[in-house]
Design a protein around this nucleic acid. Structure first.
Lengths: 349, 349
DNA sequence: CTGTATTTTGCAACCGATTGCAGAAACTTT
DNA sequence: AAAGTTTCTGCAATCGGTTGCAAAATACAG
């Protein structure tokens, strides 16, 4: 194992002090151009590489951003990660990623690890059962920028990046009404989570504004999994009269719901129109293609990291609570096009 | 900003030396139980948290594993990441993740970053156009364990984790033959990449073993994207006679291919049977459901990290080149069930 | 050529934990 | 109670950069 080259080796080689080498390598203005060049040359020639720990130890900065995410293996979240990684990498930051697997316990443990690892900033999308932000207190009190995205806590004034879920759900529901639906069901997720709560709100408002009664029976609360979609569909099939429109809070669940309904002989969109949420790739595979809300995951990741780095560079102030809202929009496809059936290509031979 | 507590503070508080505190916190046997307890109590009471940099600087170990992946936002890769994160987290390691976005340049840059960040080990799934492993040389020569998974380089003797792509493709193709296909096309990916190369091999062997002629025309080389699936389908539609079986190297592409073929009035599986590769969730959404090769992404991630940590703990030796091959298996669904149509539920109302 | 201003460089302390080695303390043994 | 063991503790050096402050080198002015 060959010895590691340090600034001391370079200094000795050039007969100058380590101080100057350090400054030179960091492009400090108080180093003669000439000297600096000599340092760079020697460094690359000798195979020097900086020791980040020594530097971090002294500078108390890590150039590392932590990310805590419910699950990595979801279409939406992996897009977000991809966007984050891209921006972080370009800005010279590393990303440490961990998953809470939807439990507070792991989220707490992860937060602690991130804290101990002295991340410069933290990006979090909270777990299902996270009900408070106590475990992030150390970050707040230490002034480490903390930014929530997508799934954000409600009570605390935290900087967060979201879409307008109320509006999106309102738009989706209104679209169903416009297609002629009058008996609409909403399949929702855990109502403790802001995104699902807001989508329910939007759903409710849209019904109200269109003089459609909203009752407890209008909502089926699930965990939005694939199985949940099947169960919800079965539950719907038992309703009488059958609803003519369904707004599901997530595409995955909507898709398995559609599959089950189709198997039961329900025609979509003619018997029931369905809208999902997320614009997952699967929406363009299910037949009929699913109308959904386009949700900019990749962009959300980019914006999250960009904002965080702005804070870190002192360009903006964390303590000023603000919310960044990204655009989202309805993408209309066959699953709600009651009249325009011609657009749908023939299915079977 | 409150002052950070160090072992010196604890030492002063308890009137003992920092040495003992350090040893105590690390459960060094040469510290009286009694003393150790006092140290732990004081530490937690004073809000001490270890400074990883100081420790790393001294120990020359980071407890960090680097991962370089082509893209994060793919169903397969995000499963792998999820598996990796789980094992790494449980073992007390952090994961630094970066994407090569399928280009060597970025892969080289990422490798350099990982190296400079002194990762304890590196996990890599190489980019499309990576043709040699020169940029990983520093890892080899420094004895930093490097482990390739899924997309592995061919010429170098590297430790790698893979599935038997030849066998899997052979099985998939043989299955098509067993279903009565006699004119089979293979839609492949970049043949410089081991996985696609091997799948082509398996395809070829299966044809040979079943006395079906293999010609250049039997293979369509693409980038396996969604668009590629459409184009490949169009190309297939122009063939005469039309093939009766297609083996696609990836589910995504297979699905868009099916969509295009169906639009053109081809009946699947009766006119053409199709097999994909990966067992992506979409295979169970497309109609007919896609027969595919189940590819254990999550497990691959788990195994990769576990192996790496074994090396790091000195349990096994990196220099001994070995290849870990995970099981993979054919999952038969409607897209190839020419005879058993009854299993498929009615599609339209 | 001297004095002042400006640009460069270096000294030395510091960041916080780890560890080889030696010495102190506690415990056994005879 | 002295000598021999065994168990604990602490000194001091070390890991490799960074930075405030002061000194040295150079430039500029008169």
């Amino acid at each position: 194992m060959d010895k590691e080259i340090t600034i001391y080796d370079i200094a000795r080689e050039l007969s100058i002090s380590p101080t100057t080498v350090s400054r030179g390598l960091n492009n400090h203005p108080a180093v003669k151009k000439d000297t600096r060049q000599k340092i760079f040359d020697a460094a690359s020639q000798m195979g020097y590489r900086t020791n980040a720990f020594a530097s971090n130890l002294r500078k108390k900065r890590t150039n590392t951003i932590g990310v805590i995410v419910p699950r990595l293996n979801s279409s939406f979240q992996s897009s977000v990660m991809a966007g984050m990684e891209k921006v972080a990498n370009e800005a010279g930051y590393n990303l440490i990623i961990s998953q809470s697997l939807e439990t507070v316990q792991k989220e707490i443990a992860n937060a602690k690890t991130m804290f101990d690892n002295r991340v410069d900033g933290l990006l979090v999308s909270i777990a299902y059962d996270t009900e408070n932000t106590d475990h992030f207190e150390p970050f707040f009190s230490k002034g480490i920028p903390l930014l929530f995205y997508d799934r954000v806590p409600e009570h605390k004034n935290c900087t967060s990046i979201v879409i307008d879920n109320i509006k999106a759900a309102y738009t989706a529901t209104t679209h169903l009404v416009e297609q002629g639906c009058t008996n609409i069901i909403h399949i929702s997720g855990n109502l403790k989570v802001n995104v699902y709560k807001d989508r329910l709100k939007g759903f409710k408002y849209a019904l109200m504004d269109n003089d459609i009664p909203f009752t407890k029976a209008s909502v089926i609360t699930t965990d939005l999994s694939e199985e949940a979609g099947i169960k919800a569909a079965q539950q719907i099939l038992k309703m009488s009269p059958l609803p003519d429109g369904i707004f599901v809070s997530n595409d995955n669940c909507a898709v398995s719901c559609i599959k089950t309904l189709k198997q039961a002989g329900i025609s979509i969109p003619d018997d029931m129109a369905i809208v999902g949420f997320n614009n997952d790739p699967i929406t363009r595979i299910i037949e009929p293609n699913l109308t959904t809300i386009d949700y900019p995951g990749y962009e959300m990741g980019e914006v999250a990291v960009r904002s965080l780095i702005n804070y870190l560079d002192g360009a903006s102030d964390v303590t000023i609570t603000n919310t960044i809202t990204l655009r989202s929009e309805l993408v209309v496809r066959e699953s709600t096009r009651k009249t325009a059936k011609a657009e749908k290509p023939s299915i079977a031979s």
